[in-house]
Structure formats: structure tokens, C-alpha cells
Nucleic acid binder design. Structure first.
Length: 270
DNA sequence: AGCCAGGACGGAA
DNA sequence: TTCCGTCATGGC
């Protein structure tokens, strides 16, 4: 068990931010999280955060996963004083982090995310894991499955995936899985590429366009200068930045600002 | 009952 | 290049 006192960290905000669909709420500010092949229970009480794991696992997996060595206060301080919108967004989502998620898991989740809503994305991901996930965890009477491997999905047809209810995205998943399993697209190589090259390589995957590629770069590869523009961000840009978002001001970490804005936009629509 | 959702694809112009 | 119809499903 590891206990930390953390600034700029709110597990409820992180779990509901729409960058990860694998948080399972098990109590007040308490979640089971599946990340790749790892399972964690995390619980927050004020600024104190409990990670149910040993020190080695904490340092090797969860410290980088939650980006605990980054100073988000510095990002927040960079917001222009007169930028009322972004000031509000940062104040609202001050506990967000940009996660370092598993690459293949993020590819699948964000292929599924297209033209879809977060509630249904979460259900599709759960269906995919429970029906095709290969590794199972037993934790407090709760069974969790990992995301299915590319090799497993490469053997599937879109008809096989019908119970997952992916709609037209099923054929994208099958095709992308074959590209990865065959080595046509090399995920290990992508992990070592810079942002521009990683994005170009991800775009070769069926079902991955510019927006999804940027999400993968931001939420898995931690290229935090990626700035995915989805329908919510598009509306936000039109409404608050008609002359263009000040990307240059936030060069090198624009994706952090994007995430504050995205989370803030979601809150304004319920 | 419609409108919309963290869009991508293939073909037309 | 840019533009446009199409693609499934279900939350709200």
C-alpha cells in the first residue's frame, strides 16, 4: 500500500474525463482500474491518495501512468489572465492529469469513440473486454478482463464482434487488429517515435483518422502537444476562440489545455 | 421522436 | 486537394 499527498489530482475528475474508459467505481472516490495487464485499486481522501500496490509497482507503473512527476501547476500558471474561458476551465478541472495509457488499448478505445458518446463508448469497451479479453482478474469478488490482444482480434470477423455492439466500427477493429498482429504497423516502433512520426504511422491504421490519432498520441504516447479537435472542442473554439486558439502560447503542452477545455465543455452540457 | 455523439472512409467534383 | 453521403447504435 502506497500513500501519497498529491496536488492537482482528483480521481473522480480523472476517471470521468473521457480519456480512459476502464475505471470502475467501487466506492466514494474509490476505483478499480485496469490498465493494460495491470489492475489497481485507488482511493482518494482529500489530498491523500492510496494506491493498493507495492512500491516497485507504484514506481514502475502507476507513477508514470498518472504522470505524478509532472507539475500541472506550471501549466495552469501559463494560462493568460484575460482568458476567462480557459481560467474557468482550469479552475473547474484542476485535478485532471494526462495519463500514459497502454497503446493498443488506447487505439481500440478511440476507434470505438468516433461518432459515439462516452456512456456508450464505455459499454462497448466493457463488452469487448468481457467477451474477448484474455486475462481475467479476481479482486474482491469482482472479475475484470483486459482488452483483447491484437492477435486475438485478428482472428475475428465483424460478425464475430456483433455482440459487442460496435456498429460500423467493428470492421475497423478487425482490420486494425490484423495490421498490428501482422506487423504491418509496428506498435513497439511507434512508442519510440516523435509526435509527428507516431501520428503519421497511426494514421495508417484502418479507422484511425486525424482526431483519433491525436487522442492516441496524447493519451497513450504522452505527446502532450497534441491537440485533438472533436465536436465539443470544435464548438468551444468557434464560440470562444473565433480568431484561433493560442496554440503557440501553450506550445509543448497544448494537449493539457485541450483536456481542461474538454472536461469543462462536458460539464456545461448536462 | 428526433437529434446527436471525443469521425473515418470512399467516391465525386 | 476539398466536399459530401454513408456508416450502426443507443443515450438523452
Amino acid at each position: 500500500m502506497i500513500e501519497c499527498v498529491l496536488n492537482d489530482f482528483d480521481i473522480d475528475q480523472i476517471a470521468s474525463s473521457g480519456q480512459c474508459f476502464r475505471f470502475h467505481r467501487v466506492g466514494d472516490k474509490s476505483y478499480d482500474l485496469i490498465a493494460g495487464t495491470h489492475l489497481l485499486n485507488i482511493q482518494q481522501n482529500g489530498r491523500t491518495v492510496r494506491f493498493d500496490c507495492d512500491e516497485d509497482e507504484f514506481n514502475a507503473i502507476w507513477r508514470p501512468y498518472f504522470d505524478l512527476d509532472a507539475d500541472y501547476g506550471r501549466c495552469k500558471a501559463a494560462v493568460a489572465k484575460r482568458d476567462i474561458y480557459l481560467q474557468n476551465a482550469v479552475a473547474y478541472g484542476g485535478g485532471l492529469r494526462i495519463l500514459r495509457q497502454d497503446l493498443w488499448e488506447t487505439i481500440l478505445c478511440f476507434i470505438i469513440s468516433q461518432q459515439n458518446n462516452i456512456a456508450r463508448i464505455t459499454k462497448c469497451v466493457e463488452n469487448l473486454c468481457s467477451l474477448f479479453g484474455e486475462i481475467c482478474y479476481n479482486k474482491s469478488e469482482q472479475v475484470y478482463n483486459s482488452i483483447p490482444t491484437a492477435e486475438r482480434l485478428a482472428t475475428c470477423t465483424p460478425e464475430d464482434l456483433a455482440p459487442v455492439r460496435l456498429g460500423y466500427r467493428a470492421k475497423y477493429i478487425c482490420a486494425a487488429a490484423r495490421q498490428v498482429a501482422s506487423g504491418e504497423v509496428d506498435l513497439e516502433a511507434i512508442r519510440h517515435m516523435d509526435y509527428a512520426r507516431a501520428k503519421a504511422e497511426l494514421l495508417r491504421l484502418t479507422g484511425v483518422g486525424i482526431k483519433v490519432a491525436e487522442c492516441i498520441c496524447l493519451f497513450a504516447l504522452h505527446h502532450i502537444d497534441a491537440f485533438p479537435v472533436d465536436t465539443h472542442i470544435r464548438q468551444m473554439l468557434d464560440a470562444h476562440y473565433p480568431k484561433g486558439f493560442p496554440l503557440k502560447r501553450y506550445k509543448g503542452f497544448a494537449g493539457v489545455m485541450q483536456q481542461y477545455a474538454f472536461y469543462y465543455e462536458l460539464s456545461l452540457k448536462d
